[in-house]
Amino acid sequence: MRLERRLGQGWPLRRGWPWAGLVLLLLVPLVLPEGFYLDLLMFTFMYAAMSVGWDIMGGYAGYVSLGHVGFFGLGSYAAALLLVHLGLPVFITAPLVGLMASLLGAGLGFISLRTRGPAFVIVTLTFTYVAQLLMLDLKSVTGGSQGLFLPLLDLPANLVIVPFYYGMLALLVIAILVSIAIRRSKFGLGLIAIREDEGKAEASGVNTSLYKILAFAISVWFAGTAGALHAQYLNYVDPDLAFELIITLNLIIMSLFGSRGIVWGPVLGAFILYPLSAYLVFLVPSRVAGQVHLAALGIVLVLVVMFLPDGLIRSYQGWRTKRPKDARPLEARASIVETTG
């Protein structure tokens, strides 16, 4: 804080922090080749990237999706099928798989985002289950509940994590850059206007349906792409793993916890919560671990919604501006304006 003030807003280090962090993260595999930490960081990147994506819809436009894992799972399947049937490597198809997810997202958006009512919640809530059911029932293509095995990457066992590490890191960097770009564009301004007051946004000339559909399509690109990479990471995909509810739940909690509608909010949320949850799961007896994990996440979601709905960053900002230095400058000035003139 004090350092910041002394150096001034324009000091390059302030803007340089993210780049310094990126360089550091790029170097990690060279210094620390052990699987455990790379694994942990890779999953953190994956969740952070998807959360930033989720937040483009949930934070900027204010429409919370309960179905992002549906796109993640379909992304996994699409990548797996492209690899198994056409021999196309996942690291090349992943962005295209993401685009397929975006198209699907636009379709679902067309169904549910033209009106303002609860349709979006309904569609995203049920979509995951439909997608899972489809993958289960289309046995001839997807192998049903047996799932699909993906050919392994041709790499030594101790290095196999590295491409995924960089892949997910790249996805995270793209997510942050896209989110920043949107925040600074008219599109982003329009989305925030929709969140604040959709009717007013419409009366201001914002094409709200188009904006929302576009935002959702962009939002799910990250889930689809991450799903594709994740399928190759596991070398396997089945309906249970691909559509794990915990994934959607994580995205929501991370965004909320860090702060919705702020670029770095979901990133912060993911970097705090993923390592924490990975550690805590160890403490639970494995017999009930999955169930307890689920219930615990549900409790965390309810607690965050009740007690920290603005998230860490925004709460911190609010606490900073509430200090006496800034108190009532507007009121004082307001009275001048209203009585003179």
């Binding site: 204010g62 429409y63 919370v64 309960l66 609860p118 919640v121 809530l125 509810l245 739940l249 929501i252 909320l256 009930v288 999955g290 169930q291 307890v292 994990h293 689920l294 219930a295 615990a296 996440l297 549900g298 409790i299 979601l301 309810v302 919604v305 009740m306 709905p309």
Partner: peptide, 21 residues
């Protein structure tokens, strides 16, 4: 209302986890 929906989503998850446990 958005937060309320998220809260009921949280309730659903808690119940599912509890039932499993």
């Amino acid at each position: 209302i958005t937060l309320t929906v998220l809260m009921t989503f949280g309730f659903a998850i808690i119940l599912e986890g509890l039932q499993g446990a």
